[in-house]
Amino acid sequence: MIETINLTKKYGSFTALDSLNLKIEKGTVFGFVGHNGAGKSTTFSILATLLKPTSGTAYINGIDVTKNPKQVRKHIGYMPDFFGVYDQFKTVEYLDFYGASYGIPKKEREVLISQLLELVNLSHKKNDYVDLLSRGMKQRLCLARSLIHDPEVLILDEPASGLDPRARIEMREILKELKNMGKTIIISSHILPELAEMCDEIGVITNGKLVASGSVSSIQKQLQSNKIIHVKLSSNLEKAIQFFEDEPKISGLSRHEKDGNSLVFSYTGTDDEQGDLLKKAILEGLPIISFNEEETDLEDVFLEITKGVEFS
C-alpha cells in the first residue's frame, strides 16, 4: 500500500532523507519514530505529494507520488504537524467546504459530515466557530477533514503534538477506531509508548536514515540479549532465591524493591527454556503467583537504537 525505494531528499549539501526503503502493507498501522529533524516530516510531505524527492521513488497503492500526484491524492488523507484552519467558518461549514472541494454531492456531504463529527466526538460543536475550539478539538477536526473523501491511506504527522493528556487519550481512541476500520496508517509521534499500543510495526529514523524497522516485539527482541523476569510468590521466598540462584542462565537475582514477596533477575534463555524454568519451579513446590517478562517500551527501544548517534 505504501512503498519507498531509495527515497532521498537533499537541500544543497544537507541530506534530509537518505535512501529510505519502506514497505507498509494494506491495513497496517506503522509508527514512525525519530527526533526532531530526523526526516519524518520530509518523508510525509513526499508521500503527500507536497515535496519532490531528489532521487528515489515512492508509491501509494502502486501509484508513483511524483508522476501521478493528483491520482495519489484521491487515496490519501494527510494531517500535517502544523495546519491552518479557516477561523471564520463554523465546524460544519469547514468540513462542508472540503467535501465540496472533493466533488462530494451536497446530500452525501450532509450525511458524511454528521458521521465524521460523531467519529471525532465533535457533534456537539458542529455550529461553533473553528477559532473558538480548543487545540485538541482543532486536531480532531483536522483529522475529520483528512477523512472527508474516505481515503484508504492516512498520513498523520504528530497528531497528538501539544495535546493535554485527556486530548491525547481521545485522539488515541479515534485512531484505534480507524485501525479497526481497516485504514492503512503511517503516524509519527513523540508520545512513544502510545504508539506501541496501536502500531503493528514501527520504523526508527535518525538523521535521515532508517536504522530499524519491524514489529515492536521483534525489535525489542533484537535489542534485548537478556530478558528481565519478575516472579511473585505467596511465601517461601528464601527457598525461591536458592532455586533460582542455582540456574546457570540467571544473573542479577534480587528482591524487588517495592514488593518483598517478589524477585527480579536477568535471564539469557530462549522462550521455550523460560517456559521450562517456570514448569520446573512449580514442580519444585514454589508458590508462584505470577511469572512474567518485563516489557521494554518504545522509549527504551529508541534510546537503545540511537545510542551514540549525534543528532543534527
Rank of each mutant, 00 (worst) to 15 (best):
S45R: 15
E247K: 09
I187W: 13
C199R: 07
P248Q: 08
G214D: 06
P248M: 08
K227S: 12
G34V: 14
S134L: 09
F97Q: 09
E201Y: 03
Y129L: 14
E118Y: 05
D18F: 02
L286S: 09
G214L: 05
E304C: 06
L263S: 00
K176I: 14
S134V: 13
A100Q: 02
L192C: 06
H256K: 04
I169V: 12
S235K: 12
S134C: 14
C142S: 15
L223D: 13
R109D: 15
L116H: 04
F83N: 01
P287C: 03
E177W: 06
G62L: 07
E310P: 07
V309Q: 08
K107G: 06
S234G: 05
F89M: 15
T296M: 15
L233F: 02
V33Y: 04
R172C: 09
A100R: 02
D297Q: 10
T4P: 09
I282V: 15
G77F: 12
K239D: 10
K52G: 09
D276H: 13
T8K: 01
D276T: 10
H256T: 03
A212N: 00
K26T: 07
S217H: 07
A16Q: 10
V65T: 15
E177R: 07
D150Q: 14
V92Q: 14
L7V: 06
D271A: 05
Q88P: 04
N261V: 01
P53S: 02
F244C: 04
L116A: 05
S251I: 00
S290A: 10
I174E: 06
S254M: 02
F83I: 01
Q139H: 06
D272G: 07
K279D: 12
E177N: 10
K126A: 10
A212V: 01
G203D: 00
V264E: 03
R109S: 14
E110M: 11
I205S: 02
H124T: 09
K9M: 08
L50N: 04
L154Q: 06
E238A: 00
I187C: 09
I250S: 00
S19I: 08
E118K: 04
E197N: 03
I148Q: 05
E257R: 05
H256R: 03
S114H: 12
S45M: 12
D200F: 08
R172I: 07
R255N: 03
A240E: 01
F97I: 09
G103I: 02
R172Y: 05
E293I: 06
K70Q: 10
L237R: 02
P69W: 07
G62W: 09
N261R: 02
K125T: 11
E245F: 00
K258H: 08
L133S: 14
L133H: 12
R172T: 14
T28R: 13
L17Y: 11
S262I: 01
T270L: 03
P151Y: 00
Q242I: 07
L50I: 03
E310M: 11
E197S: 06
V33K: 04
L20A: 13
N236I: 01
A281Y: 01
Q224D: 10
T184I: 04
I104L: 12
F291L: 00
P69R: 06
S251Y: 02
K280T: 04
L286F: 12
